[in-house]
Amino acid sequence: MTSAEPALPQIDAEERARRKAARFERIGKWTLPVIALALGLLLWDRIVVWNQIPHYILPRPGLVLETLIEDWAILFEALLVTLQITLMALAVAVLGGVGLAVLFTQSRLIEMSFYPYAVILQVTPIVAIAPLIFIYVDNRLAGLLLCAWLVAFFPVLSNTTLGLNSADHNLRDLFRIYGATRWQKLRYLQLPSALPYFLGGLRIAGGLSLIGAVVAEYVAGTGGLKSGLAFRILEAGYRLNIPRMFAALILIAVTGVVIFAGLSFLSHMLLRKWHESALKREG
């Protein structure tokens, strides 16, 4: 291997080390988390067995998996409810966030009047606001949506606002020179400039709307509507059905990851032709 290929450009020690590091990076990125997971599960399992912990305190991972399969019908139905609220909240967060951002960039007056309150809404914990919301909002679905929206809209708003304001200065001048209308400037310059920023906010908002949906359901409990995952977790907790709590938790976590991955993919597809962030991934 060393002497057989004299025609190849010489690979010095540094280059070899660099390639080795790159290979390690490539393989390790996937295998290491899997190994860590397997070890963690094994440790969990052993701790339960060695300490003889009863399953209503800490179930073995195998039991959690069994429960996930056994209770699939209940859990899946609950997942669909939670997912529905999450996606609706995300949609409303996008509409509200982008709408407000456009409004803010069009009118300094509106921005100055309302931006501080958008910040206040964002920094106030949703668990603190949610009980009030459910006092005044009769419709439970509307209440859940409102809670999830409150959590999720801000990253869309602040990122989109930043994006709309970060259009290239020379391009702005050019639009002025060509006598562009306000609408043309927004449509052809500011919105495209804001797209990468908006997509960054969207990815954060996706996770937050799931959190918002779950938290809101915790606070709201069930009533009239079908139960979501949060309610299933609470219910299982009251009944000391710990395996089902874990199973529901896993479903929520997986949902969050899928939402994030889906939005990342969307972002990549929309930007891949021109934006730096997407180009690096290709090359």
Partner: peptide, 27 residues
């Protein structure tokens, strides 16, 4: 008026032809 800046100042999301179209598009 036509203007050329120190930087090319093209819209990165638009093709070459769409960039050249801009002054017409705005009219």
């Amino acid at each position: 008026l036509g203007v050329v800046f120190q930087e090319p100042t093209l819209m990165p999301w638009a093709t070459v032809a769409q960039n050249v179209w801009l002054p017409f598009r705005l009219r």
